[in-house]
Computed example of a mutant assay.
Amino acid sequence: MTTNEGLSDAERWEQGMTVRRQVLGDEHVDDSIANTTDFTADFQDFITRVAWGDLWSRHGLDRRSRSIAVITSLIAHGHHEELAMHFRAAMRNGLTVEEIKEVIIQSAVYSGVPAANTAFRVASEALADEF
């Protein structure tokens, strides 16, 4: 069972916005909303309902585990523009800098040393206040 079973799209959006704010922080979400255009509005609605209202609201994994999965996937696929945001989200979800470092090192074997090298650069910038 998921926490979105039987919810309307509007209720999934509300649940998604709550989770999105908890994971990414109000400032990031407020900036995303402020930068929404007619062109991107449907996408913002989609990610709020589906990524945050459905996926991140499921019971199967805790948020720490979801953060590890997301960081690993972003590193593996070279989605560096999302890494900084998700490194900070991982800290909100209870990961330590040491644990994030270990996730990046783990990814070096499975995703490649260059990908891990870039991830360390992004993490160093995104988490500079934590060192």
Results as ranks from 00 to 15, higher is better:
residue 25 G to W: 12
residue 36 T to C: 09
residue 101 K to D: 10
residue 61 L to G: 05
residue 79 H to Y: 12
residue 15 Q to S: 11
residue 77 H to P: 02
residue 36 T to G: 00
residue 83 L to S: 01
residue 99 E to W: 09
residue 79 H to R: 15
residue 53 G to V: 03
residue 20 R to F: 09
residue 46 F to L: 15
residue 30 D to T: 05
residue 128 A to F: 13
residue 44 Q to H: 07
residue 7 L to T: 02
residue 95 L to G: 02
residue 106 Q to K: 12
residue 93 N to S: 10
residue 55 L to I: 12
residue 95 L to C: 05
residue 80 H to E: 15
residue 57 S to R: 03
residue 84 A to I: 04
residue 117 N to H: 13
residue 5 E to W: 04
residue 24 L to A: 06
residue 78 G to V: 03
residue 126 A to H: 04
residue 79 H to P: 01
residue 81 E to T: 11
residue 21 R to S: 11
residue 128 A to T: 11
residue 79 H to W: 08
residue 47 I to H: 02
residue 70 V to H: 01
residue 99 E to L: 04
residue 47 I to D: 01
residue 122 V to Y: 06
residue 119 A to R: 02
residue 6 G to R: 05
residue 93 N to K: 07
residue 91 M to I: 15
residue 58 R to K: 11
residue 41 A to S: 14
residue 49 R to P: 03
residue 86 H to E: 01
residue 87 F to A: 02
residue 28 H to P: 00
residue 30 D to M: 06
residue 17 M to D: 12
residue 78 G to L: 08
residue 93 N to E: 14
residue 79 H to L: 09
residue 33 I to H: 09
residue 2 T to G: 05
residue 102 E to A: 14
residue 98 E to D: 15
residue 42 D to V: 09
residue 56 W to N: 06
residue 85 M to C: 13
residue 30 D to Q: 13
residue 33 I to E: 12
residue 123 A to Q: 06
residue 69 A to H: 02
residue 107 S to G: 06
residue 85 M to S: 14
residue 119 A to V: 00
residue 72 T to N: 13
residue 40 T to N: 03
residue 28 H to K: 07
residue 13 W to A: 13
residue 117 N to E: 09
residue 28 H to R: 12
residue 6 G to F: 06
residue 107 S to V: 03
residue 80 H to P: 00
residue 80 H to A: 15
residue 5 E to D: 12
residue 118 T to F: 00
residue 6 G to A: 02
residue 44 Q to Y: 03
residue 56 W to D: 07
residue 7 L to H: 06
residue 120 F to V: 01
residue 26 D to H: 09
residue 92 R to Q: 11
residue 123 A to K: 05
residue 17 M to E: 14
residue 13 W to G: 00
residue 117 N to V: 10
residue 57 S to I: 03
residue 36 T to A: 15
residue 44 Q to V: 04
residue 65 S to Q: 15
residue 71 I to A: 00
residue 4 N to S: 14
residue 85 M to E: 10
residue 87 F to D: 03
residue 117 N to M: 14
residue 64 R to A: 15
residue 70 V to E: 01
residue 98 E to H: 11
residue 105 I to Y: 14
residue 26 D to W: 10
residue 91 M to N: 00
residue 126 A to P: 07
residue 116 A to E: 00
residue 8 S to D: 07
residue 116 A to P: 02
residue 33 I to K: 13
residue 99 E to R: 10
residue 29 V to G: 07
residue 124 S to K: 15
residue 92 R to L: 00
residue 84 A to C: 02
residue 118 T to D: 10
residue 125 E to N: 12
residue 106 Q to P: 05
residue 72 T to M: 05
residue 102 E to V: 07
residue 87 F to R: 04
